[in-house]
Amino acid sequence: MGKQMAGGKDLKSIIKRLEYPDEARIVSQVMEQQERVKARMNRVRHKIPVLSGKGGVGKSMVTVNLAIAFARRGYRVGILDADLNGPCIPKMMGISDLSFEITQEGAIPPAGPLNIKVVSMDFLVTKEENSIRWKGPIDLSPIWLGTMEMSVLREFLSDVVWGEIDFLFIDLPPGAAADKPPVIAGLIPDLNGAVIVTIPTEISLGVVKRSITYARELGMTLLGLVENMSGFVCPVCGAEADLLDGETQRIVSDLDIPLLGSIPFDRSLSRSCDRGKPLDDAHFISRRFSWISQRITERLDLKESVFEKI
């Protein structure tokens, strides 16, 4: 069996003898990009993606309120709004009118309540636009669009002056189809553990199980579930009633993932998000988030202490 030879020469042995030149500087530019991400992310103590299986579970709202809960406990916090096509974090934080300040050191992110640093596509587009348009070929190929969005996320990590922060929450767009979770996992190999936001119907229908499996396949450690819109608070007497039967707890224990806490459906929470003003820290919903934030730090401390023993 004769090997196919290039012009009568053995290409394999030619390549072996040659040193691969990078004079077009493509490899080195890719390496530099990765180094810049690493340098910024080294100063962020905990990097926590927030995921959900489907849209409409209030994931961004949970992210914002978790960030606020951590900031109220004295931590330095940042949020990366990784939903490039429907960014809503800035509006929920009441800072939609602000923008980045471009300096030599990088892009300085706007700060919201409690000095929470926010990075979002929303800061780069005019507010009349409700979808992002990219320059380039009219027939946008999904491959090109994917590369583009990956580069945006990379720049959000590498070119932003995040500074020294304790917690960076990454609000990922819903669903595995959006492909952002693998991108984030690729850019930040040392993610500290994901939070999955779900709603009771997803738990009962087994939808959340798919999200969990998906995140685990990506090699993400899971910190736990946050069950949103878990019950109903009577607007008259303030009593909380479960919208669902006690099945939830049983199903959750089968999933082998801790339930970090439940956030009941409450109008004041959605109103606070619409107005871009955080709920008062004495509000019972704020106390729920504070409790969840403590569960998260416990889980992280536990993880760290386990690793120290190895």
């Binding site: 990088g106 780069l124 587009v125 005019t126 348009r133 990219w134 380039g136 720049e155």
Partner: peptide, 12 residues
């Protein structure tokens, strides 16, 4: 520049 790719490719 910071966010160069993102900013130069946005069709605004």
């Amino acid at each position: 520049e910071a966010l160069e790719m993102t900013r130069t490719n946005l069709d605004e």
